[in-house]
């Protein structure tokens, strides 16, 4: 009886330790392959807000209101060389040629000049900062003048930027420019001054078809999570592993 009991407790002990070892082994083996890490990088704190953006290309009608509102809201220079947000119109003809235009960033609207019988497909792609989780632009800033905020938004400190333009070279998406007045790097802030006041970013506010959404990637009940769940989304240039947090629904392979 005594020995039996001892055997049982030893068996239990062995069982427990095996289970424990197995769990440790399994989690340590699985952790590096967590797909979300590859997709978007990982927030430092999963209980806090971590912003992402969703753009539905199917819904975009190319009115250019987002690009226009962006300039008005953020006092971006009006000249056609500086954009925090812009819209591109892709036109793929039956002969396979790809034509892309973004006249004045789409601010004045678009027209389609290719006759319908020659068209293979055509669509609009709104562009803006991808607020990458592994930003190539913040990586190269020599002084720490551009950074990812705790909410996952890439910002520029215009009082500290030395204007070396290295970040502009490093952004694969062409989202940065050197501001002609402040002589510092400038870019989309996801309207940080609005979202911290409970307002939507200007481009989201004015989009007439609801093609743009933004939200907390950590909020499993949130709008952005729903968008990502219901659509097959893709990011731009995934091969560069920038951890882009701008997710496109209906992104065509031609888009760069």
């Amino acid at each position: 009886m005594g020995t039996k009991r001892m055997n049982a407790s030893r068996r239990n002990f062995l069982k427990k330790s095996a289970a424990l070892a197995g769990t440790i082994l399994a989690t340590s083996a699985l952790a590096p392959f967590n797909a979300i890490i590859f997709a978007a990088g990982e927030p430092e704190d999963k209980t806090k807000i971590w912003y992402g953006i969703g753009i539905d290309i199917e819904k975009c009608i190319g009115c250019g209101m987002c690009a226009k509102a962006c300039k008005s809201e953020n006092n971006v220079p009006k000249e056609p060389f500086y954009y925090r947000s812009w819209v591109e119109q892709y036109t793929i003809k039956n002969d396979g040629s790809i034509n892309v235009v973004s006249p004045n960033g789409g601010i004045d609207g678009f027209t389609q000049t290719v006759p319908e019988e020659e068209l293979f497909k055509t669509f609009f792609v709104p562009k803006m900062c991808n607020h990458c989780a592994k930003s190539p632009c913040t990586q190269v800033c020599p002084v720490g003048a551009t950074f990812e905020s705790p909410e996952g938004i890439t910002l520029v400190d215009k009082e500290y930027c030395i204007g070396c333009a290295y970040c502009i070279q490093a952004c694969p998406y062409g989202c940065r420019y050197l501001h002609p007045v402040t002589k510092t790097a400038d870019k989309c802030t996801l309207c940080y001054h609005r979202i911290t006041k409970g307002l939507k970013p200007a481009c989201v506010e004015v989009c007439p078809t609801g093609a743009r959404i933004y939200g907390d990637l950590n909020d499993k009940e949130g709008e952005l999570h729903k968008f990502l769940k219901e659509h097959n989304c893709q990011v731009l240039k995934p091969n560069l592993n920038t951890g882009s947090k701008l997710f496109y629904n209906g992104l065509s392979a031609e888009v760069r």
Binding site: P142, V143, K183, T184
Partner: peptide
């Protein structure tokens, strides 16, 4: 001299961001 703010160039010595090749 090509910097937008040449007088801020000391920052590269005081707060070098070591992730940057330029720092």
């Amino acid at each position: 001299s090509h910097l937008g703010h040449p007088f801020r160039s000391y920052e590269i010595l005081t707060t070098p961001q070591l992730g940057s090749a330029m720092a």
